[in-house]
């Protein structure tokens, strides 16, 4: 039986803040038809398509709303993704600046840390995105380090 050390839920404030920041883009593009009345039919359709794409982009963080991050003795699990380790010191924390969207935080093991591209992340189950999780790193330190 695996022993659970801690369980974390999503930081809803952080998630909403991120959605708000993403929505700025949606609002800016949404303002274009207000100031530019002379746009033709093709431009209108293009703006609608862009607005739909931006709406999806703005609301995308909601897919993480029900995420639960669990720390076990020898593995870290988030949904279907998991990282196993022999020693918690193998775990690395990666921070990636996302410009005005803040910073993306990921947990990976030392092997996955060598691969940093977007496709690597999408295809690699040894990397877990914990950007929206509440106190993920502080809890990790309490659970695995300083003992």
């Amino acid at each position: 039986m695996e022993k659970m050390k801690a369980e974390m839920k999503v930081d809803k404030k952080k998630l909403l803040m991120n959605i708000a920041l993403r929505s700025i883009l949606f609002i800016i593009v949404g303002m274009v038809p207000v100031f530019n009345q002379s746009a033709n039919k093709t431009a209108e359709i293009a703006i609608i398509v862009i607005l739909i794409a931006l709406l999806v982009f703005a609301l995308f963080p909601l897919v993480h709303l029900k995420d639960v991050l669990i720390y076990y003795d020898d593995k870290i699990v988030l949904g279907k993704k998991q990282i196993t380790f022999n020693n918690p010191e193998e775990i690395q924390w990666s921070r990636q600046k996302m410009y005005f969207l803040g910073t993306r935080t990921r947990i990976c093991n030392s092997v996955a840390a060598q691969r940093q591209s977007f496709m690597d992340f999408m295809l690699n189950s040894n990397m877990i995105d914990v950007t929206y999780m509440k106190d993920a790193k502080d809890t990790f330190i309490k659970c695995y380090l300083n003992q």
Partner: peptide
């Protein structure tokens, strides 16, 4: 001693 910084906590390895 390698250190790890959280938002409030400071952790260390061996």
């Amino acid at each position: 001693v390698p250190l790890t910084f959280g938002d409030k906590e400071i952790g260390h390895a061996k």
